Simulated scan of single mutants.
Amino acid sequence: MGRAEGGSRVRAGAPLEGAPDPNPAVGRLGRRGACSAGLGPLLAPPPAPASSIRASSPALALDQAPDVFAVRVLLEETGEMFQAASCRGDMTVRELKEELELLVGVPLDLQRLRYLDQGDQRSLKGQACGTGRKAGVLMDETTLKFHDVVPGGIISLCVWQYDGWTELVLAAVEGDPSKLSCLGVDEGSLYRTANSKHFEGERWKEWIAQRAFVALYITSHRGHPDAMQYLLEHGANCLRRTLLGRTALHAAAAMGRLDSINLLLSYGASVNDKDTRGETPMSIARRMNRRHGERRMFLFYWMTKSGTTDPKKLMANKAFHRAKSGFGSKKKSQI
């Protein structure tokens, strides 16, 4: 498993749509899910739950809340808890999903969010996200303030269950190549869903390619080099992008996964690819304080630029030393 750096905005704590239920062979991550994903425990006690905030301060409204605040995000299928630290009342659900694509590692188009206070969560314990409960489902164009999301509140993230995506996400989070091999990530797979059994030719190939990429994106984010190696050897494209223009290298950079970064670079991943926000993997690593990952990509960029594979020869490059002197500066333009 790859190594994540400290100082993250993403922290996992103790763990607490219609396709058939996930394959029992894949299994679910229980209370040990957060640790097995390699995200580590929360470094500080979690904020008070939304219900206790409301109870202690009935008059508290988002108008009185800090301009920037943190909420917790529960990935329902695995029980992992993450922290989104830069939320605002006027932030749209779409904007939050864009950030969660990096924080949680689930592509935006597979996310379904809902907001429930502590009492609602207890009443729904054990129920799937696909129940269609009207209260709590967050629509992309609405704001956090519209849904009365308060600092420290818990937002539940569910994976869309149609077409076997939940099974795939669970296997990728776990990082087991043998499970991924049974879930339609290469063209020779016998795996079929109610939808995909009608696909043929190019449509079938595209469906497989998308599944392989999603699995690669998640395994890169979680730091599972063995699963990544399997996917890359069986045709997963490390240059493919999410709807937000992010590659698997963006995901690895967001978490500072050095093993993932090295493997993706060896397969031709680009440190220069920009997402729809204009961020490269390197600038994302810088923003999320993943210094070791940023340095690794910086060195790779200059070795490629100078046409050498020998770091010692790179040290003689004057342009490299000029760039290195300004490395990490906020005033320095993005590479």
Rank of each mutant, 00 (worst) to 15 (best):
S220P: 05
A252V: 05
Y191R: 09
L244D: 13
S181I: 00
E233V: 11
G175E: 06
V214E: 00
L232P: 04
G201L: 13
G245P: 12
E187P: 00
V169H: 05
H221D: 03
G175I: 03
G223I: 10
A254W: 01
L239F: 06
L190V: 13
L243S: 13
G256R: 03
E202K: 09
E167Y: 05
A236I: 01
V169N: 03
V214R: 07
T247M: 12
R222Q: 15
A253R: 05
Y191F: 14
D259N: 09
R240V: 02
L232N: 12
G223H: 07
W204P: 04
T193H: 07
L243R: 13
T166D: 06
C238H: 08
D186E: 04
T247Q: 10
F199M: 15
V173Q: 02
E206R: 15
P177C: 07
V214T: 11
A215E: 07
A209C: 05
N195P: 00
G164Y: 10
K205I: 01
F213I: 02
A254R: 00
N195A: 11
K197L: 10
S196Q: 05
E206G: 10
A253G: 03
A227R: 08
I208Y: 00
V185E: 08
S260I: 07
E187F: 01
R192C: 07
S178W: 09
R241V: 15
Q210T: 12
Y191I: 06
V169G: 03
D226A: 15
L243K: 11
C182M: 14
A171M: 08
C182E: 14
I208N: 00
S181M: 00
L249N: 11
A236E: 02
S196P: 04
M228D: 03
W165T: 04
L183M: 13
T247R: 08
T219W: 01
P177Q: 08
L231V: 04
